[in-house]
Design a protein around this nucleic acid. Structure first.
Lengths: 157, 157
DNA sequence: CTCTTTGCAAATTTTTTGCATGCGC
DNA sequence: GCGCATGCAAAAAATTTGCAAAGAG
């Protein structure tokens, strides 16, 4: 086993869970046992678990939890900014343009927009220590948020 | 319709298709009508189409093409470095660590590793003109390649 | 002629949804 | 108690796979 799955120290974990509780209160998210346990699981793991993996782990503590609760909870936590999703929440999309550019991805509708590097901005640096993980073939920089169209639609409601 | 779906100019498109042909030859990828049409479709679009969308577009030219050919072709093109995949090719994975860090994602096994910013490297710049698209809520920088474990496994074969 | 690639169909995997019940506030 | 959140089951969406036939080099 590598170090990457080790637990956070108890102190650090408790602090993060407390911060999570406060954040839930501030966003009017109900603090259920399931949410707490899902967050705790995620905060304890460095393995970037999938929804299935979170489900399997949480189940040990809460045997009755259902997979769809995990999905729903992860989605609402992402929206609240409490957890980060590696990858997209929508299906894969493709781009044949290999010149350096980035993407803006709408977290609501999934739309993808090309973003050119800011002129004069320093170039992206690939950390040297990345070779400990593997060989980098390409770099993916994406900015996520809510697109203007979705925001306008939400405001109108 | 926005500008984002407009076609490349004919000249530019032809150049990219020619480059694609050369690349196929160099990688011993057979140059089939389907591959050519899929690439052409992608190179013509600025909409970052999904596999389904590519399928629908290519179908107009090649009515007999099947969806799984599109999937297979896009995957092999990605592997050859001809097209870029926005999002992950694997299921979603989650991270509760919100301190600034990046990820190395293995394109083969899907494993995700934490990558710390290189000390002293210039900070990531969010381009100012991004506001034309929407409001940025978070930034996702990932390096993709083949992890050392997968590479070792491949070499051994 | 050989070996990759395709099309078809079916299966898997991943994620979402409707609805009645339950629990946090 | 009110209304969001959950569990269950079923469905939908996205992607993959096995196999025989077709086509590229």
């Amino acid at each position: 086993m590598s170090l990457s799955n080790q637990l956070e120290s108890g102190k650090e974990l408790r602090a993060r869970v407390d911060a999570f509780k406060a954040l839930c209160r501030s966003r009017a998210l109900r603090l259920t046992e399931q949410r707490l346990e899902i967050f705790r699981t995620l905060a304890q793991s460095k393995a970037h678990p999938s929804a299935e993996a979170v489900f399997a782990a949480v189940r040990k503590k809460l045997p009755n939890i259902s997979l769809d609760t995990v999905y729903r909870t992860l989605a609402s936590m992402e929206e609240a900014g409490v957890v980060f999703r590696v990858g997209l929440s929508t299906k894969a999309r493709f781009d044949a343009d290999l010149t350096p550019h980035y993407h803006f991805v709408c977290m609501n509708c999934g739309e993808v927009y090309d973003v050119l590097p800011q002129p004069g901005a320093p170039a992206l640096v690939v950390p040297q220590h990345i070779s400990q993980f593997g060989e980098v073939k390409n770099v993916n920089l994406q900015f996520r948020g809510i697109c203007n169209r979705c925001r306008a639609a939400a405001e109108q409601k």
